[in-house]
């Protein structure tokens, strides 16, 4: 059975993929479905869901909540994806370097990951975004900075154990050049778990991004789910829907990515050969 076939038989993973696809579709078509800016006041404030023409109601300034969620999907998914790519790239680079070189390089990289894993990483992200003032760049950098150590440790572990694998030793004895050993022998065998970790990291990045913007540390020009919840949380007694629906959006997206990630993990499990 191929990895794809195994993934296809996993019901939870397929449900996850369906939800995720719907979210991506929503994000892609947001400007078509909701052509007006999500910041625009379109109707009366405090409209309950289905009370007016707005599916999920309006907020305290009369902005369409459904429009906010659709446009927020763009922001959340994009920021999380970019941050994950950055963190994964950095993690692979440093982890591979540490794992292949060993010695002092390894020591330094491992100390660094330990440092980042010890300190409260959310607080670090808050500090970084606050001091460099909230923007797409500072948010992506902050998320990447707190996320790379996990990938680095994973890749390093893979490299360390694969370096000792007999087929890599055989390649060394054959006299294969180093780049070929890294790219043809080690990397293809190490990449499975990295893909899984990276896909799960997208979920964590969405949670991080929404937490930052909940605290008011989102990019002030971009509508995001966390911002919507943060802005309306003091009205929770009178207007439950304003912070409920964006939360549901976060929940569904993160859940679906986790389901897909777990499914990928099972599908790429290397124990399949036996």
């Amino acid at each position: 059975m191929t990895a794809f076939q195994r993934f296809r038989t996993n019901l939870a993973a397929c449900v996850g993929l369906a939800i995720l696809a719907a979210m991506v579709l929503l994000a892609a078509t947001a400007p078509l479905i909701f052509p007006t800016s999500p910041w625009e006041m379109v109707g009366e404030p405090y409209l309950r869901p289905l009370e007016g023409p707005y599916l999920l109601g309006t907020d305290m300034l009369g902005r369409d909540i459904a429009a906010g969620i659709a446009h927020g999907a763009r922001v959340s998914l994009m920021l999380a994806l970019v941050a994950t790519v950055a963190a994964t790239g950095l993690g692979i680079l440093l982890g591979a370097f540490a794992g292949y070189c060993g010695g002092a390089v390894d020591e330094v990289v491992m100390r660094a990951t330990e440092f980042f894993q010890t300190i409260p990483s959310f607080l670090l992200a808050v500090v970084l975004v606050a001091l460099f003032s909230p923007s797409i760049l500072s948010i992506v950098v902050a998320i990447a900075v707190v996320s790379w150590p996990g990938v680095a440790r994973l890749v390093r572990g893979q490299f360390l154990s694969l370096r000792q694998a007999e087929f890599v030793q055989a390649a060394l004895v054959l006299g294969e050049p180093t780049w070929r050993i890294i790219f043809r022998q080690i990397l293809p065998n190490a990449i499975g778990p990295v893909i899984v970790t990276a896909s799960l990291m997208v979920a964590t990045a969405i949670l991080l991004e929404s937490s930052l913007s909940f605290l008011g540390l989102g990019d002030p020009d971009l509508m995001s789910w966390g911002y919507m919840i943060g802005a309306s949380r003091n009205l929770i007694r009178d207007a439950w829907w304003m912070c409920t629906f964006p939360g549901v959006a976060i929940f569904l997206t993160v859940l679906s990515i986790n389901l897909v990630g777990d499914g990928l993990g099972d599908a790429l499990n290397p124990r399949l050969t036996a």
Partner: peptide, 22 residues
Amino acid sequence: SLAFYATPIFWIGLMGIIVFSI
């Protein structure tokens, strides 16, 4: 565990307030 793992904690808090306090 999948559900709680996917929920932002500030939102769990707000939903908890709606249910258990309000």
